[in-house]
């Protein structure tokens, strides 16, 4: 019985329905059921993260054992992962929580993760500009419009824009508040209608690809 998809589809329907009802009826028993379901959801969803980590570490471990291309960097990745987890455990034992200001675990966040991540994203400033030049060279009306809007928005957000014309920041604000907002709203409405459709298909068991 468990081997089929019937029970999982039934679980999906029950849990989903509880969530929907609890939104409209936030009183007992639905309110409590929603709280419990959300708690369970966060616990179970975390295990999916563990599966992903297992897959990533497994792949790099195999690269090291087989000495395949760039395996040396895989050692760096696994060492970084292990080091962070071990320091987290040690600091939890030493200070009661790894998230203490004085903990080495917090240092890892402040002096490794923050600079690496922000530098990585800032690096995109160079590539995004050159990629944009190649992709959006004003070949037609749409591409020209996109390019001009991007330039206006960029200039309108820096002091140079105000130097060019005091109206440029105001025009940028208008672009953000009116045409940009209109298209964003249209796209958002389309997305939420699509999400509703897919959600109903999943709840009714029409869409079952997540179980394969």
């Amino acid at each position: 019985m468990l081997k089929g998809k019937g029970i999982p589809v039934f679980i999906t329907f029950i849990v989903g329905t509880i969530m929907i009802f609890s939104f409209f009826i936030p009183h007992k028993p639905f309110g409590d059921l929603e709280k419990i379901s959300l708690n369970w959801y966060s616990i179970i969803a975390g295990f999916t993260m563990l599966l992903g980590v297992d897959s990533l570490i497994g792949m790099h471990y195999r690269k090291i054992t087989r000495r395949t291309g760039n395996w040396g960097y895989s050692i760096v990745l696994i060492a970084g992962f292990t080091g962070t987890v071990v320091i987290g455990i040690i600091e939890t034992i030493r200070l009661g929580t790894a998230f203490n200001e004085a903990s080495y675990f917090t240092y890892i966040y402040n002096y490794f993760i923050v600079p690496l991540q922000s530098t990585m994203f800032s690096l995109l400033a160079f590539f995004i500009a050159s990629a944009a030049y190649r992709a959006f060279r004003a070949r037609n009306f749409d591409a020209t419009l996109l390019l001009i809007t991007a330039i206006i928005v960029m200039l309108g957000r820096v002091p140079l824009g105000e130097q060019i014309s005091p109206n440029l920041p105001k025009f940028t604000e208008w672009i953000m508040q009116v045409p940009q907002m209109a298209a964003k709203r249209g796209i958002g409405l389309g997305i939420s209608l699509g999400a509703l459709g897919v959600s109903i298909r999943i709840l009714l068991g029409i869409e079952r690809s997540y179980l394969s």
Binding site: I14, W40, L211
Partner: peptide, 28 residues
């Protein structure tokens, strides 16, 4: 057996998205 927790996560996620999608739709 792994389908059971997946079903729970998908059900909860779907259930959460329905009212929030409606809310977004009406607000917009």
């Amino acid at each position: 057996l792994s389908r059971i927790p997946i079903a729970f996560v998908v059900g909860a996620g779907t259930g959460l998205s329905v009212p929030s999608s409606f809310e977004f739709l009406f607000k917009q």
